[in-house]
Design a protein around this nucleic acid. Structure first.
Lengths: 146, 146
DNA sequence: CTGTATCCCCGATGATACTG
DNA sequence: CAGTATCATCGGGGATACAG
């Protein structure tokens, strides 16, 4: 039951990190790590943007492409397929002519919004501080070079 | 003040997502998005693992390499430099012989652990369901192919 | 409208060897 | 011990053309 150093973290956070640490203990198997499995998805370029776009309401393919921004059809399709396969998004085809398709979050997909919002919130809050840190670091670099 | 559809999300989550959506409204500027800026870091292969490893306690370069797993010195150095530049990690050199260096989380770095733990927790909880969804999807694919 | 099929390129990552 | 330097690779992602 080691506490993290200089801890000021909520017990909940401590517990999750401890579990994760224990589970990855000594293992080199990056590949089979459930957390990596999920995290790599979040890291994909468009996943987060699509989930957020769908949080608002179900959307059709073209509406999604408009809302997400400059995503290509190729990547939109590919990312949506992955999300569908993972059970986060549901795809519904209406056999009209021309065809119409809509995408919506599943219950599992909606449950992902909470941790994602947590991360988005932190990013938004911390961005100024991070940019300041970068500026200072780069300043030191330049000085150090002389 | 549109609520998300079929909403069962905490107000906090709703608010964060709404802010994010508003801020990205119509913009194609993926590049200048603060959230993307931070999220892309998390997406980097080793960032999360290093932060979690440092959550426990400050560690030296070699200890970190051992704990993280099969990371190369090259990537360990590179990722640590990025984290240092972003102000999440602090690097301290002890001019002994041979030299010794330790890395520890800054206050900012520690503050990142909360949202990250939130995501890790979700990933761990949801992994079974995700794997089940994949299995079902792939099953349908195979059947559909025949 | 909603995709597929190809081709291609660049940047992230890895392997290896060398150094203060 | 704690890195750097260099080269090789691999796949994510973009551009474009075609299709049901």
């Amino acid at each position: 039951m080691t506490r993290t150093h200089a801890s000021n973290l909520p017990d909940q956070t401590e517990a999750v990190l401890r579990d994760f640490a224990v589970q990855s203990e000594g293992k080199t198997d990056y590949a089979n790590c459930p957390v990596r499995d999920v995290l790599d998805r979040v890291g994909e370029k468009w996943t987060l943007l699509i989930l957020v776009a769908l949080a608002e309401e179900p959307k059709r393919f073209s509406a999604l492409q408009r809302d997400v921004g400059d995503i290509s059809k190729r990547m939109l399709t590919q990312t949506l397929r992955t999300l569908e396969r993972d059970g986060l998004v549901e795809r519904t085809v209406y056999p009209t002519k021309p065809p119409s398709v809509d995408y919506r979050l599943t219950a599992l997909g909606r449950s992902a919004l909470n941790p994602l919002a947590s991360l988005i919130g932190w990013a938004a809050e911390s961005h100024d501080e991070i940019r300041a840190a970068r500026a200072e670091y780069d300043e030191r670099e330049v000085v150090g070079a002389w």
